[in-house]
Simulated scan of single mutants.
Amino acid sequence: MVAEAKFLRAFYYFDLVKNFGGLPIVLQMAQPSDVEGIQRSTIAETYELIEQDLKDAIADLPTKSEYSASDLGRATKGAAMGFLGKAYLYQEKYKEAEEILGDLIDTQEYDLCPEFKDVWSVENNNNIESLFEVQFNSDLSYSLGGRLPVFTGSRDDSGWSWGLPTSNLEKAFLDAGDTERLKWTIVKHGDNVPGDDTDEGQNYVITPSKHKSARINRKYYIPHDLRPARYDENHNPLNHRLLRFADVLLMYAEAANELGQDTDARRALKRVRDRVGLPEVTSSGTQLKSAIRLERRLELALENQRLYDLRRWTDSNGKKALCNVMGENGSFVQYNLYQSTDEYELTNQGENSNKGITFQENRDLLFPIPNTEVLLSGGSIAQNPNF
């Protein structure tokens, strides 16, 4: 129980430090008067807590295979090892990341699903690729289901159409010859939705005038014959995958490449590419690094990984990758304003095409601390720079 609590504390602090930077660290129950005047610790100090909690959790948590089916979804030794490897990677502690992720791979507790389409299938929750995922169900009594399929779905299909895939992402798949993952990641207006053979899934409607890109996220889509009644409520049973084995392999490949262990990096990368029928990457050094980064974009697209990768990666010009993607001269902004020929995004200007143009690299690598938190602290919690 203590190990589970430490895992969860590390998980939440990791989520917060990625978004906001250094945090006020509270390690025990406390009354408001006990934390009056508390200030933020440094990013390094916050990561020290995360690392120690995960190491403690690893020592005491069971493996996934030691749990019964009724306990699926609980924190496991493998999940703690995976998040520790990710925490190391985010700090550029490549040696430590390579070691713990290599040990995790060697446990053989996890493997890739045989087919990419099975990774996010509602019929394949807690699959062999899953290290940690949020457990949802369709019990109407307690609203314990998820709503992401609704949030990201077509407005013509009871959806809210948040976080739509872009033509820039689709182009990345096409440029890489990656048709298999494209099919199971992006649905475009007029497509037959793969895996949904119902009438509603054929010639699928994502009305361009109501959707900036006329595309939706296939990963969170639930076929019509598998949807619960009263679909637009918090009881969709598609578990949300937070850490999966393909991510572990690609993190290991990245760490190995940074250490000059390109043979090991290529071997891990090959496992991910083999599943979707893509050729083996034979490059080394910086070219291999670029290939691994692209693979992360394509494999983990729309899974809440890309922003954090772009924030942590340093490009050849010494800037964080996000600074080269966003901003007035950023590649994503330039593509949308001057290079794109996409019929839907260019036509639908209900939402402007200059998204990201106001990005400032001396401000926007972190989010602002919510003003409510600053006020509740009486001003002792310092705001992030330039907000």
Rank of each mutant, 00 (worst) to 15 (best):
M1G: 13
M1E: 09
A3I: 06
F7P: 12
F7I: 09
A10W: 07
L23A: 12
L23E: 12
M29S: 12
M29A: 14
Q31E: 15
S33G: 07
D34G: 12
D34K: 07
V35T: 14
E36R: 15
I38T: 08
Q39W: 02
Q39H: 06
Q39I: 11
I43P: 00
T46R: 06
Y47T: 03
L54Q: 05
L54W: 06
D56C: 05
A59Q: 15
K64S: 05
E66Y: 05
Y67K: 11
D71H: 12
L72S: 12
T76W: 10
T76G: 12
K77I: 09
A80N: 12
Y88W: 15
L89H: 10
Y90C: 08
Q91K: 14
G102A: 08
L104K: 02
L104Y: 11
I105H: 04
T107C: 05
E109H: 04
Y110K: 11
Y110E: 04
L112V: 08
C113N: 15
D118L: 05
D118Q: 10
W120I: 03
S121R: 06
V122D: 05
E123P: 00
N127W: 09
N127C: 07
E129V: 00
E133N: 06
V134L: 15
D139V: 04
D139I: 02
L144Q: 14
G145E: 02
G153W: 00
G153Q: 00
W160R: 07
S161E: 00
A172L: 11
F173A: 00
A176L: 00
K183M: 05
W184G: 01
V187S: 01
V187F: 04
V193I: 14
D196V: 03
D196T: 03
E200Y: 09
V205C: 06
P208G: 04
L226H: 03
R230P: 00
N234A: 10
H240S: 13
L243G: 06
D247F: 05
V248C: 05
L249V: 01
M251A: 08
A253K: 11
A253W: 05
N257F: 01
L259Y: 01
Q261D: 08
T263H: 06
D264F: 03
D264M: 05
A265L: 08
R266I: 07
V272D: 06
D274K: 14
V276C: 07
L278S: 07
S284W: 01
R296I: 08
R296F: 07
L298D: 02
L300W: 08
A301G: 06
L302N: 04
E303M: 13
Q305M: 14
L307V: 07
D309N: 05
W313Q: 11
S316R: 10
K319I: 00
K320E: 10
N324W: 03
M326R: 09
G327K: 11
E328C: 01
V333I: 09
V333P: 03
Q334H: 15
N336A: 13
N336D: 02
Y338I: 07
E343P: 08
E345G: 04
N348V: 01
N348R: 02
N352E: 09
S353D: 05
K355S: 14
K355L: 13
E361W: 06
D364A: 08
P368F: 11
N371Y: 10
E373Y: 15
E373S: 15
L375W: 08
S377E: 07
N384C: 13
